[in-house]
Nucleic acid binder design. Structure first.
Lengths: 193, 193
DNA sequence: ACCTGAACACCGTTCAAGT
DNA sequence: ACCTGAACACCGTTCAAGT
């Protein structure tokens, strides 16, 4: 009989960084960032809050870093450079990525304030690099690719921020079609690249 | 002898919302948002923390709303529509405003996470409206003006966010010239409008 | 009207102890 | 190795009290 390391004496799955991050994200999405506390997170995991420190020695700081990484680190292209389709249509790849990335940010709007912080600077590095690579493969020169990658990412993050704040149409009650507006601005930027 | 209402018995200027917001901003800029507490703010104002609640009944929530308003509510044009110069060169007005707005966000980078929250939705309404007005006066159609105003504001906020995180050049150590990069993206967006 | 002081319910984190 | 329980220093906020 092989022992089962994933079940402990109390018949509970042991803690892991993945389970902790997922539970934290569930709290942030459901109740807001302000209600994410170590004690509440412990409750959600059916564990004392102090047990979390065994897996995240840097404590809450490390927890928030993990949330940023989980939400904002989405590459614009598969790691394999053998993907011929994306090389053929870089604008389409960028458009699809931008839509997905925006959807992710809006689905986890509570972590947006964390994305806009100095914390976990490595979280977006991969994303920016993959954007540059897609552009470069599409025939864009190195310097222009670097610039456009930042412009595009800035637009997507900033647009998500405006949507979350729901900045309305100058007081007129007519609602904004954010989906259409996002696509319009996105096309404007991709066209000008 | 006229009594001086601005000096109380302890020879201290009385509290005011303006003085409170300024002191709070000084703490955020100098020590970071995480160190802005009601007690520390009280210390900076040489008052007990509880005195602040007399001026901000909604407490810390209202304090943070005030910080967002103070940093992010900057109109793109003077209130008077008689300013002929801005009507003549809307692109120049927008460019100058965008540069100033970016500088403000970076000067108070600690409040950026607050700007990206649902709090104080009215804080950006005036800004968006003035952007639309500048565009409309420049001959841009109503719908296009509304769309471009959001695209531009999204870009400026998102770019400031990237700068604060200092997302570097894909691991290569060569530093990014953020000023030049901001202007390049800005021109791209204004050209495409 | 404006501010103080004590109190309350919470928070992140440390540390010794259990298994 | 992994988790618990008590403890510590702090936090936002309420409330009765002072002037």
């Amino acid at each position: 009989m092989v022992r089962q390391p994933q079940i402990n004496a109390q018949n509970r799955a042991p803690l892991s960084i993945e389970r902790i991050i997922e539970a934290a994200l569930r709290i942030v999405d459901g109740q807001g960032l302000g209600r994410l506390t170590m004690r509440r997170l412990g409750d959600a995991l059916e564990v004392e809050a102090m047990a979390i420190y065994h897996h995240l020695p840097r404590g809450k700081e490390q927890l928030l870093d993990g949330l940023v990484a989980h939400v904002a680190a989405a590459p614009a292209a598969p790691a394999s450079p053998a993907d011929a389709a994306s090389a053929a249509a870089p604008a389409g790849t960028l458009r699809a990525w931008a839509r997905d990335y925006r959807a992710r940010l809006l689905a986890h709007a509570g972590v947006l304030p964390l994305v806009v912080t100095r914390r976990n600077p490595a979280a977006l590095t991969e994303t920016v690099a993959s954007l540059r690579e897609v552009l470069r493969r599409g025939g864009v020169a190195e310097d222009a690719a670097a610039a456009t990658a930042h412009t595009l990412l800035a637009y997507v993050i900033g647009h998500a921020a405006l949507e979350v704040r729901n900045t309305d149409e100058d007081g007129a009650d007519r609602a904004v079609d954010w989906d259409a507006r996002f696509d319009a601005g996105l096309d404007q930027i991709l066209r000008a690249s």
